[in-house]
Structures are given as structure tokens and as C-alpha cells.
Design a binder for these strands. Structure first.
Length: 293
DNA sequence: CGTTGAACCTGTTTGC
DNA sequence: TGCAAACAGGTTCAAC
């Protein structure tokens, strides 16, 4: 469910509600998606939330150093949350019965409870000491909203993977997922199976702008809700009403009217317009195009 | 490097 | 009607 716009939406909601709050106690249900459950139960109570941020698809709750650590130099830490496919993170009043599959309860000093719910448990929860944060995120690519067009083009060069595989790869860019890849490619009129390195500079430019345009528009509408996603207030987003490709198999393309098709690219359902997003020419066997000097 | 398929887990939809 | 297969916003790993 949650890609960059959904995570950004959750983070904005949590930021206004959690900043400055203190975590009073912790209660855990199933823990197979938690890195070190014992450490969370032991080290989290008493910690104050200094800052809420997003890193790619991760939600970051930066914690203040514990008061009066050994010789006064308590280490800061960060509660890192990945929502996987079905994760939800939202503060609730304790009277509100917990929905099924709620596996983490963090009682707050304002009487409310921050709850983590995740039907499939593809998410992840980890308490990372501040000094280890850098290593934890090592290898993730640039944020698609921060990268420059020049940088984007440079990183595309020489990559022989299919463009969709590359966009989905969090080591290439952090934050895109299946929905926004397809929407960006539709905007840019690029077939998902096109080889990245073979995009013209014109296409690369359109893709760069497509990605930015889609993400900013989706954030404005508080993300896409297909079936699970709700923000930190429990509200669904509305960007699913603006989808032009994703989930629209056999429906007419908004540009040309030709029926949207679904194919598997990079192991994922990929929706595209066969008219606007023309397929790459199939390369014949043995016709590998590598440095032929 | 890049691709494919499976695995992780639960729930919903689709097809025969 | 009923049951099995397919599919779902993500990530990771093995094998080729």
C-alpha cells in the first residue's frame, strides 16, 4: 500500500500529533516483523519523540536521548517503521477497541496510544541507535523529490535494466512503488519494459517531470487508498481517483482512448497504454549490444 | 549486472 | 454453491 506519498501523508499527520510526546509504555503482540522486540520493550519507555520524519518509505520517530544517561551523554535513537503492504500507524484513544492485527501499542503521556496494525506483517519495526542510522540506510538511492534532473539522467546512463525494474529498486531511488511507477511512466509515455539506458534525453526529462508531478499531486490528495491505506487520522487518501494507468486494465486511456493493458514487468503487474507507451523492439538472441569496438 | 521465482503472511476477488 | 487459484500498495534471497 504505502509508497512515498502515503508515507509522507502519515508522517505529516504523526508529526503534528506526536512531536514532543513521551512514550510511557510498550505492549507487543506478534513480533516476527520486529528486529529486536526485547530491546523495544526495554529501551523505549520513558523516551520522548523529538521529531517525526520520512526516509524513502520509512517512518522515523527520532527520540531524545534518555534523561541523565551514564555521565549525562545519553545516546539518541530512532524508532524506524516500514509499513510494508498493509501497515498502519496512528494514535488512538485507549477506549477505542484495537482493530484485528494490531501488534504494537505505545502508550503516550497525553493518554493516547500509538498503534501499529499490519494484516500481512510485511512491515518492519526497529529501534536503531543514532550512530547506526547511517549504516541502516546505507545503499538507499536519492529521494525522487530531491534529486536533480541532471543527477537522475546520470544515474540512468549505462543501466541496462528495464526502466520499471530500476524505478522500483530502492537502491536507485527511494520511495517509488508499483502504483507511482506506472503513473509516472504513463505521464512520460514510456513503456515499463524499455531499457533505462536507451531512453532519449527527451524521455528522461519527461520521466523526471512525470515522477515529480505524480508524487506532488498524490501528496496533495493525501495518497492513494486502494483497500487498506489510511493516514494518521484514520482517513483514506483520494489520489486513487486520479490514477491514469494503475488498476485500469481494459479501461480507456485518458489521452487516446485505447484500452489500458496489464502485463508483468519486473515481477509486478504493470499497467500501460499500448498506444501512448510503445513497446521496445524485441532484441534478437545473440544480438547483445555491448561495447563492440 | 540483470532476471526470475519463491518466500514471508493474511485477506479478498475471480473463475470454473 | 463451493473451493481453488490468482492477486494485493513491499522486500529479500537464491539461482542462473
Amino acid at each position: 500500500m504505502p509508497e512515498l506519498p502515503e508515507v509522507e501523508t502519515v508522517v505529516r499527520g504523526l508529526r503534528s500529533q506526536l512531536t514532543g510526546r513521551c512514550i510511557v509504555s510498550v505492549r507487543l503482540g506478534k513480533t516476527d516483523f520486529i528486529d529486536d522486540p526485547a530491546a523495544i520493550e526495554r529501551d523505549l519507555p520513558g523516551r520522548r519523540i523529538a521529531e517525526v520524519a520520512r526516509y524513502g518509505k520509512f517512518v522515523l520517530l527520532h527520540l531524545e536521548p534518555p534523561a541523565g544517561g551514564p555521565d549525562g551523554v545519553g545516546r539518541g535513537a530512532c524508532l524506524v517503521v516500514h509499513l510494508g503492504m498493509t501497515g498502519q500507524l496512528a494514535p488512538r484513544v485507549p477506549e477505542q477497541p484495537a482493530t484485528p492485527h494490531t501488534h504494537a501499542f505505545f502508550a503516550l503521556d497525553d493518554g493516547r496510544e500509538l498503534r501499529y496494525t499490519d494484516i500481512r506483517r510485511f512491515g518492519r519495526l526497529a529501534l536503531i541507535p543514532q550512530p547506526e542510522l547511517r549504516a541502516f540506510f546505507a545503499g538507499l538511492g536519492a529521494d525522487p523529490l530531491e534529486i536533480t534532473e541532471e543527477e537522475f539522467r546520470t544515474r540512468l546512463a549505462g543501466r541496462r535494466a528495464m526502466i520499471k525494474a530500476l524505478l522500483l529498486d530502492q537502491h536507485f531511488l527511494r520511495g517509488l512503488g508499483n502504483i507511482y511507477c506506472d503513473e509516472s511512466l504513463w505521464r512520460a509515455r514510456i513503456h515499463p519494459a524499455r531499457q533505462a539506458a536507451r531512453l532519449s534525453s527527451e524521455q528522461a526529462r519527461r520521466l523526471y517531470r512525470g515522477i515529480r508531478g505524480v508524487l506532488t499531486a498524490a501528496i496533495r490528495l493525501r495518497g492513494s487508498s486502494i483497500s487498506d491505506f489510511v493516514d494518521a487520522e484514520g482517513r483514506p487518501g483520494e489520489y486513487q481517483l486520479r490514477h491514469r494507468a494503475y488498476g485500469r486494465e481494459k479501461k480507456p486511456c485518458f489521452r487516446c482512448g485505447v484500452k489500458i493493458r496489464r502485463v508483468i514487468v519486473a515481477g509486478r503487474s504493470s499497467y500501460f497504454c499500448p498506444q501512448c507507451q510503445s513497446a521496445p523492439r524485441k532484441r534478437r538472441r545473440g544480438q547483445s549490444r555491448r561495447k563492440r569496438q
